[in-house]
């Protein structure tokens, strides 16, 4: 068995009217429970509980609202295991679940002015209404995805690792030069 840690599609990248790249390993922890009662456990990380459909950032970490009883904490991969243990310890006795899902997910970065155009081909979402600081869970093609604006001309997408190849091919095809729908750019 290899002790090397690999993301879903190490180094995968494609160049179209948007650059699609697999963003490498990212630590992710799913927290489920009454959001109001998770606040104290997350306070040491310097993150506020996000409002409905919001994503809050602090340094290398971000916290996303996934559903009325679920949050997704994203942090550097190397910190995930330790953070999971700490959170589990702090939430002991609470009706809450902490799970390290880092190896169950894949992250993609779409860079370029046409990033919303690429995603608009695949998702039933009006990307003009998706503002920075908001996360949108939807489907991309036939699989579930969560999308947010990560910076100027950059969008990020999280999906299950098991569908990473499908997602990469899907995004690459949607970003083929000459197929720009020019909806948002």
């Amino acid at each position: 068995m290899s002790d090397q840690l690999l993301s879903a599609l190490p180094g995968a990248a494609s160049e179209g009217f948007v650059t699609v790249a697999e963003a490498g390993l990212r630590g992710m922890i799913t927290l489920r429970g009454d959001l109001g009662r998770l606040t104290f456990a997350l306070a040491p990380l310097g993150l506020d509980i996000p409002a409905q459909r919001a994503i809050t950032q602090a340094d290398e970490r971000s916290l996303a609202w996934m559903s009325p009883d679920e949050l997704l904490l994203m942090l550097p991969y190397s910190e995930a295991a330790e953070a999971t243990r700490t959170l589990q310890e702090e939430l002991r006795g609470e009706f809450a679940t902490v799970a390290n899902v880092s190896d169950a997910r894949a992250v993609f970065a779409l860079r370029g002015k046409g990033a919303p155009d690429v995603l608009a081909k695949l998702c039933p979402v009006d990307f003009a209404a998706l503002k920075p600081g908001e996360i949108r869970r939807t489907r991309a093609g036939q699989v579930a995805a969560a999308i947010w604006v990560a910076g100027e001309d950059e969008m990020r997408l999280v999906c299950f690792r098991s569908v990473a190849q499908y997602m990469f091919d899907l995004l690459t095809t949607a970003a083929l030069p000459g197929s720009e729908p020019c909806l948002y750019s």
Partner: peptide
């Protein structure tokens, strides 16, 4: 009503 998103039926 749980997350406030308006979407078409393929998301449901």
């Amino acid at each position: 009503p749980c997350c406030g998103v308006t979407a078409e039926e393929t998301e449901f």
